[in-house]
Simulated scan of single mutants.
Amino acid sequence: MRSHVNQRHERVLEIVRRRGSLRVTELAEELAVSAVTVRRDVETLAEQGRLTRLHGSVSWPRPATGPTPAGAGAEPAAAARTGRVPAGAAPAGTVLGMVVPSMEHYFAELVRGAQDAITARGGRLVLGIAHWRSEEDTAQIGRMLDAGVDGLLLQPSWERGVPSAQQEEQLLALGVPAVLVDRRAPVGGRLAGLDSARSDHVLGGAAAVHHLAGLGHRRMSLLAQDNPTSPQVREGYQAAVAARGLAALTPVDVDPEDPRSLDAAARLLYRAVLDDGVTAAIVHNDQTAIGVAQRLREHGLAIPDDVSLVAYEDEMAALADVPLTAVAPPRQAVGETAVELMLARLGGHGGGDGGEAAPSRHVSLVPRLTVRASSAPPAR
Rank of each mutant, 00 (worst) to 15 (best):
V149E: 04
L268R: 13
V179M: 02
G205H: 03
E313L: 13
L262T: 06
P231Y: 06
T337M: 10
A77T: 12
R368D: 12
R368C: 07
T44Q: 14
V292E: 03
L203E: 13
W132K: 05
V241I: 01
P359C: 11
R218D: 07
E168T: 07
F107L: 01
H131N: 15
V12P: 01
A114G: 05
P256D: 00
G128S: 04
P259H: 09
A46F: 09
L203V: 15
S308N: 02
G56I: 09
R133A: 10
L269R: 07
L51R: 09
E104N: 13
A147V: 08
A79S: 10
H55C: 13
A32D: 13
L145N: 05
V292D: 04
V278Y: 12
D182A: 04
Q115T: 13
G277T: 05
A117E: 07
V209W: 03
L172P: 13
D116P: 07
A92V: 12
Y237G: 01
T288H: 02
R184I: 11
L268P: 05
E336H: 04
V363I: 14
S261N: 06
H217C: 03
A70R: 08
D321Q: 14
A173R: 15
E47H: 13
S360M: 10
Q167C: 03
D226P: 11
P323F: 06
L365S: 07
A311W: 03
A242G: 04
A192S: 14
A376T: 01
T82V: 10
I129T: 15
G277K: 00
